[in-house]
Design a protein around this nucleic acid. Structure first.
Lengths: 217, 217
DNA sequence: ATATCATTCAAGCGAATAATTGATTATAGT
DNA sequence: ACTATAATCAATTATTCGCTTGAATGATAT
């Protein structure tokens, strides 16, 4: 049976989908969405051997999802295209709506730590224009350095309890991190609520903010 | 190493992505996007054994991408969610932008048959309001019956040459079919151009039209 | 009841995938 | 040139995937 051009195209699309078909690769993409990274940095963050991370990254590259360049003795990987963030977002939305297990995990872990509605991008924009809101980036400093929301202050989650003095207890805080299911901002909300702060989570993370064409510092 | 909730969620998202990771399943989804279908009808269209099609469909169902209901002795499958069309669209867009092979296939086959710009949904809406355009659905009659663009006439591709008399040679024609890479509308354009008709292709197919919230008859 | 048809299940086989290990290539610094 | 470091390649093993075959359900019609 000779296959037509449609089948050939679908086979290519399927390769891209398969590249998204592993939890480690999705996690690699989440980190790469923060900014470009060396293989070793990625492998450490995710807890993979360097060789394993390298092979996963090459699969992502073959699928056109990431690109790489050499800088000295490092090879830096990056997302190939802002549209990849959109693909991950729609994948997440479809899974949220139709997979019961996703709902179960979200209820079991995330809902506990943030019973309040998250803040949307639009709402945050309105509030920052009005002035009375502190934007808090709880990611590690290196990710903050690669780009962050305008005016955001950076206190990594681990240091949060020790640096409470830097936060104004009377002003509302909006915390964000890597993405919708990055645990950092959830933990930050739980921690700061425990200390009496008025804090909510931004619905999504920096990559989605950037992909929406909003300004990044 | 205990995995956190993020890893558990990514593992679920990866299952959805893997379900998209096979050309046959993408093709099944394209047909299901036209309307609900029995296992046998799908297996025939795609050229799979019934058992094989059934297993692919069950994988899609486990991934939350399709649903099914029994109607007499048939089991009818359908897309679970309009968002699935959006997921397929973003997958296609990412692949188009970043996979050289996709570009090669498109140039090799599709570009030949339609050297003109396709018509966007917005443009078609404007023209139909102005009145002077024939909308032509070249899908098989059963798919037309399950839903089609307002005012569209149905002439399946196979019958096109025999039914030229039904088309007004002075009015511009816009042809559409199942989706962006369905060959039907490309062939229709090539055929009708050969007979001197003014014809262009709609950029996308019926599923994307419906997913955009536009009216369907 | 029994026959028939659509679909699903279960078993089996070959191919592809994931992770580990150790060797190899490429670059920077001495 | 030599060494150290980052990344990739190559080989291995365990697992999963895709398809076929034949049997088993589930519903309808006679």
């Amino acid at each position: 049976m000779s296959i037509g051009p449609k089948q050939a195209l679908f086979a290519e699309f399927a390769k891209v989908a398969r590249a998204l078909g592993h939890a480690h690769r999705l996690e690699l993409l989440e980190f790469l969405a923060q900014g470009e990274r060396s293989v070793e940095a990625l492998s450490q963050r995710i807890g993979l051997s360097v060789a394993n991370a390298s092979q996963h990254l090459q699969q992502l590259r073959r699928a056109g999802l990431v690109g790489s360049r050499r800088d000295g003795k490092f090879v830096l990987y990056r997302l190939q295209d802002e549209a990849v963030v959109g693909l991950l977002t729609t994948l997440r939305i479809v899974a949220e709506r139709n997979i019961a297990e996703v709902d179960r995990i979200v209820r079991g872990y995330f809902a506990d730590r943030d019973c309040m509605e998250p803040v949307s991008r639009e709402e945050l924009l309105r509030r920052t224009r009005a002035g009375a809101v502190t934007v808090l980036d709880v990611r590690p400093p290196d990710e903050y350095a690669l780009g962050h929301l305008p005016g955001a202050i950076n206190i990594p989650l681990r240091q949060l309890e020790a640096r409470l003095a830097e936060l104004d207890p009377d002003q509302e805080i909006v915390a964000y991190c890597r993405g919708p299911y990055c645990v950092l901002s959830f933990e930050a909300v739980a921690t700061l609520r425990g200390h009496g702060f008025k804090i909510r989570r931004l619905e999504e993370g920096l990559p989605e903010w950037r992909a929406a064409g909003l300004p990044v510092e």
